[in-house]
């Protein structure tokens, strides 16, 4: 049957490919325009009608970004945020997630519902009190304050709990019989098995931290303490809009995450599919 219908199905596949290619090109067109604009001069960028390609490929826009904002500081702040938050969440969320999945203790249900409540509430509800807290401990306008709220995550705990629930309990039983204590069971047996869940959590945390805008804007006032996401938002000029520079700045800020995605694409897509849209 497959052979009889092969020419028909080839034609159907061609039609599907045609639609997908056109749509995929439309999806990447903004990136193409962004990259081309970075190489243009300001006059070229303001040309009517706009031209697809620059006359010559110049790198002035990138140099201007480095002069205009403390890009390297901001980059370092972003990297530091991603690393500390990811490591902290992997530790705290996997421990708590394991406890909620596999250890019995009084009030486990109640405590878990409290965590779910944190997940349901819109993030913005925390901002003003968190600012007050940072102010009272003298951390306003510090990178520490910018990082702190992301060290703990109810969502990450929920994710890890769901993952640990899918692992067979018999493994833990066997290890206990061999004399391993509960921490050893967690650390030596369950954690290695939970690797796919840990990777999903790490990717989700890294992506979310790299792109975070609102909290850094709220808590930071010195530009060298901002992360990149908030940092490049300060690029817009007061009088003229220098599009080549804006495009160069946005490209430099988004590129590390895009490169990471292209390297780990399968992990990324699986990770986002398991973490949903939160």
């Amino acid at each position: 049957m497959a052979r009889v219908r092969s020419s028909e199905s080839v034609r159907a596949h061609l039609a599907v490919h045609a639609v997908l290619i056109i749509s995929a090109l439309a999806m990447v067109f903004p990136f193409f325009w962004q990259v081309m604009t970075t190489f243009k001069t300001q006059t070229e960028a303001l040309q009517v009608p706009p031209q697809l390609l620059p006359a010559t490929f110049g790198f002035d826009a990138y140099r201007q970004v480095l002069q205009r904002i403390p890009f390297v500081d901001m980059f370092n702040n972003s990297v530091l945020s991603v690393v500390t938050r990811t490591v902290a969440q992997l530790i705290f969320c996997s421990m708590a997630g394991y406890a909620f999945a596999r250890l019995r203790f009084p009030f486990r249900g109640t405590l878990f519902v409290m965590l779910l409540a944190i997940m349901m509430v819109p993030r913005e509800i925390y901002l003003i009190p968190q600012t007050e807290i940072m102010k009272s401990v003298g951390l306003l306008d510090t990178v520490t304050a910018m990082i702190a709220p992301g060290l703990f995550s109810a969502f990450g705990t929920f994710l890890m709990r769901q993952f640990f629930l899918t692992l067979p309990e018999s493994l833990a039983e066997a290890a206990r019989l061999d004399g391993a204590n509960r921490f050893q069971v967690f650390y030596l047996i369950m954690l290695p098995l939970a690797k796919p869940g840990l990777i999903a959590l790490a990717i989700f945390t890294a992506l979310w931290t790299w792109n975070e805008l609102l909290w850094p804007l709220v808590i930071i006032s010195t530009s060298s303490n901002l992360n990149l996401s908030a940092g490049i938002s300060t690029l817009s000029g007061e009088y003229v809009t220098d599009y080549p520079m804006l495009m160069a700045g946005s490209l430099m800020a988004e590129l590390p995450m895009i490169v990471l995605f292209l390297v780990l694409q399968k992990r990324f897509i699986e990770g986002i599919a398991t973490t949903g849209m939160k």
């Binding site: 999806m27 325009w33 604009t37 792109n211 938002s233 690029l235 995450m257 990471l260 995605f261 897509i269």
Partner: peptide, 24 residues
Amino acid sequence: SFYRVLFFLPVVTMPTAVGMVWQL
């Protein structure tokens, strides 16, 4: 997987940068 990557690219792109590009 090629199509998936292209459609997914905007998802990992920083919203600040996305906003700046679309403004242009």
